[in-house]
């Protein structure tokens, strides 16, 4: 564990807590894409399949349970909780996210580190996470400006993988044989997809306006 990875995990945890705070306290999911949340639930379900078979640390298992529990409960809230579901913008959240799942699965079957069931699904979760934010970014463009909590959620979600990139650089130089091109490229693509969001997000900070 290094400070970049810890900062990344804490940023990721913060993004989840901000979203849960918004949905649970003000019972609103306005501006939040249910489709991105569904993709993230699939990402965690396929990435943490080894949660019961390979124990890394208490921290690792605890965080996996937090991410699994929060992603599925956010999907549940947005789909079935009456008050929250009413604030869901169904007409605008129309990105065909299932069209993202199949190509990621095919790519994972073609490009992976080991051809085993767990490894292919784990690789699939990396590819899917890289594009999982697309429905949210499309919804963002359609709803024009969003409330601060949603903006902070997206900012933190985009930042966590950027911190992981610093972690990979650190580990590459400090650990021999630490080379994982698939993880690195997927993480880089994922972070680059946030580029224009980060640009407008920082403009907001400078200008002090809402996120346009």
């Amino acid at each position: 564990m290094n400070i970049f990875r810890l900062a990344g995990d804490m940023t990721h945890l913060a993004s989840v807590l901000v979203l849960l705070l918004k949905i649970h306290t003000i019972k609103s999911c306005a501006g939040v894409s249910l489709r991105t949340q569904e993709l993230y639930a699939i990402v965690f379900a396929t990435r943490y399949l080894d949660i019961f078979t390979s124990f890394v640390s208490v921290y690792n298992t605890f965080m996996k349970l937090v991410f699994l529990g929060s992603s599925f409960s956010i999907v549940w809230y947005m789909r079935y909780h009456k008050a929250v579901h009413r604030t869901y913008d169904r007409e605008q959240d129309t990105f065909r996210h299932w069209f993202l799942v199949l190509p990621c699965l095919v790519l994972a079957l073609l490009i992976h580190e080991k051809f085993t069931f767990l490894e292919v699904l784990w690789t699939f979760s990396l590819y899917l996470e890289a594009v999982a934010i697309l429905p949210q970014l499309v919804l963002l463009q359609r709803t024009r400006n969003i409330d601060n909590l949603t903006g902070q959620y997206i900012f933190l979600l985009g930042g966590y993988r950027g911190l992981y990139i610093l972690n990979w650089i650190y580990r590459y130089f400090t650990e021999p044989h630490f080379v994982h091109w698939i993880t690195w490229i997927a993480g880089l693509v994922q972070t680059l997809l946030y580029a224009d969001f980060f640009y407008y997000y920082f403009l907001r900070f400078i200008g002090g306006r809402g996120v346009e």
Binding site: R5, D9, H12, D50, S54, V56, S57, N60, M63, K64, F67, E113, K114, E119, W122, Y164, N167, R171, E175, H177, F178, H180, T183
Partner: peptide, 10 residues
Amino acid sequence: SSLSNSKDEL
């Protein structure tokens, strides 16, 4: 092997 050091991340 990859199990050693890339599965210890979230």
